[in-house]
Nucleic acid binder design. Structure first.
Lengths: 133, 133
DNA sequence: TGCCTTAGTAACTTTTAGGAAGTAGGCACC
DNA sequence: GGTGCCTACTTCCTAAAAGTTACTAAGGCA
């Protein structure tokens, strides 16, 4: 593994150019998983190894190109690993590296917050409807 | 407060069109803070009320336009609140709403992970240098 | 009068994402 | 033996988003 690859992708136009870690830890984290697709990919892979097509169907709205781009970027950053089988039709498996697995708490907290928010919205809508009537 | 504004912004091209909550809690969360700028704005406001200019200088690389856009979006979503003083030169203060404050654990976990990552990179670089010599 | 201030907007350029079509290459089918 | 199928890309073109720069309002102050 190339340790230098761990130096990531912050500070450029889309935090993807300069090989330099920002001082702020939050910005450092965002340098690796700063867009929503990477987080959704992470969410998918937290439940285990997935093929390209499985990721695509598991993440509604993502295009092939963007999925490929983000997978490559995450592989470069050492978050995920890529395993190509010399078969026809082609088969490529993706799974989290040890580093990628350490990101699990972040997704957990986000999932937890999302659940609470969904519940709040549901409750508020209900009360709003009651008030409307 | 308009409760319906809590229904957010997921599923469109950039998760900002349809007023519909996704089933996945992670995607729900990403609908509100799915881009890096919002998370950095959140980080700034977690330490207290800030003026527009303070936010701008506290978040290196953000442009006026993008800061304005994200602040407006976060205000619509009920995460932050905006207070305009009728003064010249103008003064506008931003601060977290109660809802916005509930996002604190997410930023905390990201900061924690970022610290660990920074430490790892530093250590690995050091070892790599030793190996290179 | 002229210049300072800050938050925001408008016009314009660059970057990124989306969509559709093309590629590889072994296999099944007619 | 030609045709089509399968999957994981890749390429091309267009649309949308983000970035950059310049400009505005409107009172205070020299």
């Amino acid at each position: 593994m190339l340790y230098r690859n761990l130096l990531v992708t912050i500070g450029g136009r889309f935090m993807d150019n300069k090989k330099e870690l920002p001082l702020c830890p939050v910005a450092t984290t965002l340098g690796l998983i700063g867009n929503k697709w990477k987080i959704l990919i992470l969410r998918e892979l937290l439940s285990g190894t997935k093929r390209f097509g499985e990721l695509r169907s598991g993440i509604p709205g993502i295009s092939q190109k963007v999925l490929t781009q983000n997978l490559r970027s995450m592989e470069e950053d050492g978050i995920i690993q890529r395993l190509v089988y010399a078969e026809v039709p082609p088969r490529v498996e993706y799974f989290l590296s040890d580093l990628g697995n350490t990101l699990r708490p972040i997704i957990d907290v986000m999932a937890e917050w999302g659940l609470g928010y969904q519940a709040m919205v549901k409750k508020n809508l209900y009360e709003t409807e009651k008030m409307d009537v």
